[in-house]
Amino acid sequence: KTVHVNGVQYDFDNPEQAERFAKEMAKKAGLQIQFHGDQIKIE
């Protein structure tokens, strides 16, 4: 899974790890999470 945070890309082999990371980042920055198939976007 790939997580995009403000244009920066983070790759994870483990989907659960990717989602946990995305939730942490979104919570910290007060941003929205969008799921697009294999990609998670935080903007």
Rank of each mutant, 00 (worst) to 15 (best):
H4M: 14
N6Y: 09
E19S: 08
Q9V: 13
H4G: 02
Q34T: 13
Q17R: 02
E24I: 10
E24G: 02
N6K: 05
G37K: 08
V8Q: 06
E16R: 07
K23T: 10
A18L: 04
D38S: 09
F21H: 00
Q34I: 14
D13S: 08
Y10I: 03
Q9C: 15
T2R: 07
V5K: 02
T2H: 10
F12P: 00
F35T: 07
R20M: 12
H36K: 10
E16C: 14
F21E: 01
Q32A: 10
L31I: 07
F12V: 01
A18H: 00
A26N: 04
A29V: 09
K27D: 11
Y10S: 00
D11N: 13
H4I: 14
K28W: 13
G30M: 07
E16M: 08
A26T: 02
K23M: 12
P15A: 13
G7E: 01
Q34R: 10
N14P: 00
A18I: 02
Q9W: 08
F21T: 00
D13W: 02
A26L: 08
K27I: 12
A22M: 09
Y10M: 02
K28T: 09
V8D: 02
I40S: 04
E24Y: 14
T2C: 14
A22P: 00
Q32M: 10
M25W: 12
V8E: 03
V3L: 06
E43V: 13
A22H: 01
Q17H: 04
G37R: 05
E43W: 14
Q34C: 15
I33C: 14
G7F: 03
V3Q: 02
M25A: 06
A29W: 15
H4E: 06
D38G: 07
G7C: 11
D13H: 02
Q17Y: 03
E19V: 14
M25E: 07
Q39L: 12
G30N: 08
H36W: 14
G7Q: 02
I42D: 06
L31Q: 05
N14Q: 03
Q39S: 12
D38I: 08
R20Y: 09
H36C: 15
I42C: 14
V5F: 14
K41C: 15
K27E: 12
L31P: 01
N6S: 03
Q34N: 10
Q34K: 11
P15M: 10
A26V: 03
K28H: 10
Q17M: 09
I42E: 05
G30Q: 07
N6C: 15
P15L: 11
G37F: 07
K28Y: 13
Y10A: 00
F35K: 06
G37V: 05
E43S: 09
A26C: 14
I42P: 07
N14Y: 04
Q34W: 12
T2K: 04
G30W: 09
F12M: 03
A18W: 08
Q32D: 07
F35S: 05
D13M: 06
E19C: 15
G7I: 02
V8Y: 07
I40Q: 05
D11K: 14
K1W: 15
L31T: 07
K41N: 09
E24Q: 08
K1C: 15
I40R: 01
H36M: 13
V3K: 01
Q9M: 09
Y10H: 02
V8P: 00
E19K: 11
E24C: 15
T2Y: 06
D38H: 08
N14H: 04
L31K: 03
D38E: 09
Q9G: 03
K1I: 14
D11Y: 15
H4Y: 15
T2N: 02
A26S: 05
E16A: 09
Q32H: 09
A18Y: 04
D11P: 03
V8S: 03
L31G: 07
Q32P: 05
G7D: 01
K23L: 14
Y10W: 05
V3H: 02
F12E: 01
H36G: 08
Q17S: 09
Y10K: 00
A18Q: 01
K23Y: 14
L31Y: 10
K27R: 11
T2L: 05
H36Q: 11
I40V: 06
A29H: 15
Q17D: 13
V5Q: 01
G30E: 06
N14S: 13
E43T: 11
K23S: 07
E24W: 14
A18E: 00
I40A: 04
A26E: 04
Q34F: 13
E24T: 07
T2E: 01
G37M: 05
Q34A: 09
F35V: 09
V3E: 01
D11L: 13
E24P: 00
E19Y: 15
A29Q: 12
G7A: 02
